[in-house]
Design a protein around this nucleic acid. Sequence first.
DNA 1: TATTGTTATACTCTATAACTATA
DNA 2: TATAGTTATAGAGTATAACAATA
Lengths: 156, 156
Amino acid sequence: MRETDGGLAMEPRNRYEELARAVSAFGAVKRGLARVLPVDCQGASAAVLALLKHHGDMRMGRLAELMSVDMSVCSRHAAHTVERGWVERLPDPDDGRSRILRLTPDGLAMLTELDRRVTDAFTRHLAEWSDDDVDRLTTLLARLRDSFGDCRATHA
Amino acid sequence: MRETDGGLAMEPRNRYEELARAVSAFGAVKRGLARVLPVDCQGASAAVLALLKHHGDMRMGRLAELMSVDMSVCSRHAAHTVERGWVERLPDPDDGRSRILRLTPDGLAMLTELDRRVTDAFTRHLAEWSDDDVDRLTTLLARLRDSFGDCRATHA
DNA sequence: TATTGTTATACTCTATAACTATA
DNA sequence: TATAGTTATAGAGTATAACAATA
């Protein structure tokens, strides 16, 4: 029996198991990033603000979809941002059950501060990275998220 | 003032903000993967088993380092796997304060089942991906984690 | 005195279920 | 009856601090 790996009979390599380990270890990056946020703005609030800026005004259901969380979870996060004056809830002219979420000037100011801190953190930690590698990672992460689709549980 | 982007005055693009959004949205993938695990084996337990198999026997502090969590957190996760008979704690001949964590045959069997489920999930969701892209993503994720270093808080 | 590990407590994020209001 | 959203409750994961045992 010939081996092409130098004579050792190796376990068959499973690239999915390696990916799973990398995914599992990824939590450390999220926690490292969360640590640079202001104390009064949690990670979930930051995500709400960033999505409202990037996608514009939207309803709760749409935001929950973008965050891939149950609407009950999204509702709490949105309430948190409304309490702090970063987001306002406007009546939805098309549907009385729904309200439109909109970033306020204070919310935009907070988001600007958040972006400054996040950019600063990446600038420090990814100093050795080429722009192309950063873009490649961003693209692959987005693609992975798309490939997994909306994995939220369906409580039918 | 000339514009090279078709006449629209665009915001300066910040690749770090895009990466931050991709990182933020990544939680959906972790949750999707966690959903395929057996009910009696949580994600943290799965990580403990995978790391013990991949790196071999080790002490608590080393495992905490690999998981990038505080040792108090790691201790709880390890206790969970010990309770279920997947890991045993052996005395450390070099240090009476410490114990060596070792995967048991039951633990290896559980890990085999976990790997089967995770591989199955990836096979379904990443059917369109080339092997090279999977490897590229795995490599970039590992590199990102390394670049962020050990971001655990230092309660000195 | 410093270090390894454990336990108690609190906080963040998420899901399920029950509920209100509107379509 | 179905849908949009809210609230209550429970569970998983993490950090801080206080503690025990050993170096």
